[in-house]
């Protein structure tokens, strides 16, 4: 049964890691705008496609 205590301790450490990374994400502004990046990430691809079409 002692293994449970060990596992709890490990998962606790991992959880702290996640909490810190969440804080870092909020601080760096990742949650300020939750819509635009989803659109923005599609743009570059389309641009490249277009250029390819033109050169063909």
């Amino acid at each position: 049964m002692k293994i449970i205590f060990g596992l709890i301790a490990i998962s606790f450490v991992i959880a702290i890691g996640f909490l810190i990374s969440f804080f870092w994400a909020v601080k760096s502004g990742q949650y300020d705008d939750d819509y635009t990046p989803s659109v923005r990430m599609l743009f570059d691809d389309e641009l490249i496609n277009n250029k390819n079409n033109k050169t063909e």
């Binding site: 959880a15 996640f18 969440f22 804080f23 909020v26």
Partner: peptide
């Protein structure tokens, strides 16, 4: 942002305290 931190801390504490209470729940 403060509000996000508040929720994050409460959620973190909630999950971990529950986990740390497992021995108690299981009656170990």
């Amino acid at each position: 942002k403060t509000f996000s931190y508040q929720i994050a801390i409460a959620g973190f504490a909630f999950g971990n305290i529950m986990m740390l209470s497992f021995p108690e729940y299981l009656g170990l």
